[in-house]
């Protein structure tokens, strides 16, 4: 399969100036000062095929944004190599710019006092899109992203969710082959997040567009991506499909039972590793450690102890899985 992105021992080290506190520190800093090296990304190897949707996950300071900046050509690496659609991004940023799109959740490319339509028209000239292609794409996205009523309203009057839909359209109008999304759902409410996730995923599937998606919200990676890359302190911790990640890291299941009885009367003492997490009238949520009690045994015990009206078995939320990955890396050192 054709590669969209290839990273080979990509490393970025920043020099950070250190300054002692107080007036003496300020005066000393006027001279040579002292510098400290901070490794933001360390020997990162990664290959992403065209059309893949990859979640790039890590805690603050893990090196996610630094990597995306290197891939979009804004930052030069200290060592190593990267290829994006065959370009060395930091040497050919402007040529690459025609073929990638970027969305930074806390940045905007829409002109604040003008309607989105004006920005879209500007971007048509910036990305050298013909008038007919622009009109066709805009019609499609207006319908798909439901932004018809927003097109002629000044951006300052739009809600964050509405603005983000317009931001995504702005990033898609030149039909980029790769879309870099850096925290696109940050600050959005649950409904707006769901809409953005659906749209981004569908649009990627329709156009075979490669996505590299960073987020702190594990829901984003579950709903949008097929593969997850976890980095921590600049190093690759894990690179797996979402499904495989769940299989590898899920040691617990969450069981929710609805019962005819108001209170579930279950003796957890005879079921090792079973814990009641939440209790409401007629509804109880339990968590079971699979290595100690198989889920079938718990379900049988539940069936014996109450009149079940409904039952669901779920994996724990993705953020617990990611926390488990970080815990494992802290305990054992960084895996490759």
């Amino acid at each position: 399969m054709d590669r969209a992105i290839e990273l080979d021992r990509l490393t970025k080290t920043y020099r950070v100036r250190e300054r002692a506190p107080g007036l003496r520190g300020a005066i000393r800093a006027l001279g040579r000062g002292s510098w400290r090296e901070v490794v933001a990304v360390r020997d990162l190897d990664l290959a992403i095929d065209r059309g893949e949707r990859v979640a790039f996950v890590g805690p603050n300071g893990a090196g996610k944004s630094t990597t995306i900046k290197m891939l979009s050509g804004i930052l030069h690496p200290t060592s190593g190599h990267a290829s994006v659609l065959g370009f060395a991004p930091w040497r050919e940023r402007q040529r690459l710019g025609f073929r990638i799109g970027t969305i930074f959740g806390q940045r905007t490319q829409l002109w604040y006092h003008l309607p989105p339509r004006d920005t879209f028209e500007l971007l048509r000239h910036v990305y050298d899109v013909s008038a007919s292609d622009h009109a066709t794409r805009l019609d499609r996205y207006v319908e798909r992203f439901e932004i018809g009523a927003l097109l002629d309203q000044p951006v300052r009057q739009l809600s964050l969710g509405q603005r983000m839909r317009c931001e995504i359209v702005a990033a898609l109008l030149h039909a980029p082959e790769i879309l870099f999304l850096d925290e696109p759902t940050i600050g959005l409410d649950v409904d707006a997040k769901a809409v953005i996730r659906d749209l981004v995923r569908e649009e990627s599937e329709r156009a075979g567009r490669t996505l590299l998606f960073t987020s702190h919200d594990t829901g984003d990676m579950e709903e949008v991506c097929d593969r997850v890359v976890v980095i921590h302190e600049g190093r690759l911790l894990l690179d797996e499909s979402i499904a495989s990640l769940r299989r590898t890291f899920i040691g617990r299941k969450r069981v929710t039972v609805h019962t005819g009885e108001e209170v579930l009367n279950l003796d957890c003492g005879v079921l090792p590793g079973v814990e009641i997490k939440d209790r409401q009238p007629h509804r109880t949520t339990l968590e079971v450690e699979l290595a100690r009690t198989p889920v079938e045994r718990l379900v049988s015990a539940l069936a014996r102890s109450a009149r079940l009206t409904d039952l669901s078995v779920e994996d724990p939320p993705m953020d617990e899985i990611v926390r488990a990955i970080y815990r494992r890396s802290s305990a054992t050192g960084v895996a490759s």
Partner: peptide, 30 residues
């Protein structure tokens, strides 16, 4: 790089610059 990208059409930079100027004028009118 081993990449080939369609070159921008002639006058692209000039048209883009003019589009920025038009946007600036429109923003001013608003």
């Amino acid at each position: 790089s081993g990449a080939t990208a369609a070159a921008p059409s002639p006058g692209h930079a000039l048209r883009a610059t003019f589009a920025f100027a038009q946007l600036g004028a429109r923003q001013e009118r608003a």
